[in-house]
Amino acid sequence: MREIDARTITDVVESLCIDAACDLGHDVEQLISDAAEKESLPRAQYILNQLIDNIKLAREQQMPICQDTGMAVVFVEIGQDVHITGSYIIDAINEGVRRGYRKGYLRNSVVKDPLERVNTGDNTPAIIHIEIVPGSSLSITVAPKGFGSENMSALKMLKPADGIDGIKAFVLDTVKAAGGNPCPPVILGIGIGGTMEKAAYIAKKALLREAGRHNPDESVASLEQELLHSINALGIGPQGLGGTVTALAVHIETFATHIAGLPVAINMQCHASRHKTAVL
């Protein structure tokens, strides 16, 4: 049994929070640069060029890419041969978030109660997903999620008879209804199958994939390509002000489901698709 001190987890989460907020992945940056080259509408280019300048400035000055430094979503994969010592893992993660948001001068955007709405002042609690996996390592991913895009996400329990056409219609309707609100160009995480909450969970996990990399299943990959093409034909464009680049990528994950159901969840992600991972 391998032992990992909870204090190590706190330290790692602290630095992942700051890195994720300030240093956008080169995969997303590349897709935005490609989009700026493809885009022909001058005002859309004006916006995409600002995004590229912003990414570089944020990285150089270690400033958040976006002031909505999000609710911290933390994915943890714990090898089943790992034993956490010192304190409860959930407390250790939240302490890391608390420190990271304070040391990184990140915005505290969490309210304690959804109805009373008083800011907790330290961006906790984080949303924490833990999976037990084989082995003796521990992987932590911090994916801060801004709510401009999160608010535009949607879930629908389709009927099996709705099939692929029903899924396509739901995705396009959701992107159209969102318009400029989720800060396009967006990345779409789509979960198909499972139960209601499983579809939502795999939709969010799909956003952690390297931006633009397709699902290894060929038929799913071709659905990703087709949806990306149809979304970009909508003309919503960067920031919803017109143009040919509304989405940078579509990532679909699937899971087994019930004979009577076809759950589909769409997690909308703005162009600031932030996530950082560390493996202990």
Binding site: D53, N54, A58, Q61, I65, C66, C183, Q239
Partner: peptide, 13 residues
């Protein structure tokens, strides 16, 4: 007027 959402560091400058 629309400012560019997500260009927080650039706008701060």
């Amino acid at each position: 007027l629309a400012a560019t959402g997500g260009a927080g560091a650039l706008i701060a400058s």
